[in-house]
């Protein structure tokens, strides 16, 4: 099982925490595709506190956090 935590506007129309069945080789890119989120909408993508590339496989029991960009001042 992979836990995905969504923040800010990513929660619009979605739960704030979503669980995905783990399978070998599952990547961040596949997860956001399932969520209907585009890569360019994501500012922070971390897996268990570590920055990951979109096509790197994610391990079972991982926590994935997705944040949209906040850039105003």
């Amino acid at each position: 099982m992979i836990k995905v935590k969504l923040f800010a506007t990513f929660r619009n129309g979605r739960e704030k925490e979503i669980h995905f069945e783990y399978y070998e080789g599952i990547t961040g890119r596949e997860i956001i595709e399932k969520l209907g989120i585009k890569e360019e909408e994501v500012a922070i993508f971390i897996v268990n506190g570590r920055d990951k590339k979109w096509d790197e496989p994610i391990e079972d029991e991982a926590t994935v956090s997705l944040f949209p960009p906040v850039g105003g001042g």
Binding site: F7, T9, I44, P68, V70, G71
Partner: peptide, 29 residues
Amino acid sequence: AGWYGQVTTIFPGDKTLDFLYKKRTTKGI
């Protein structure tokens, strides 16, 4: 941005912004 905000303290060598803005030219929400 709206209801949201973020803070971090960056020391030389940390380059934390590289984690916060995966796409450097991203427009914020």
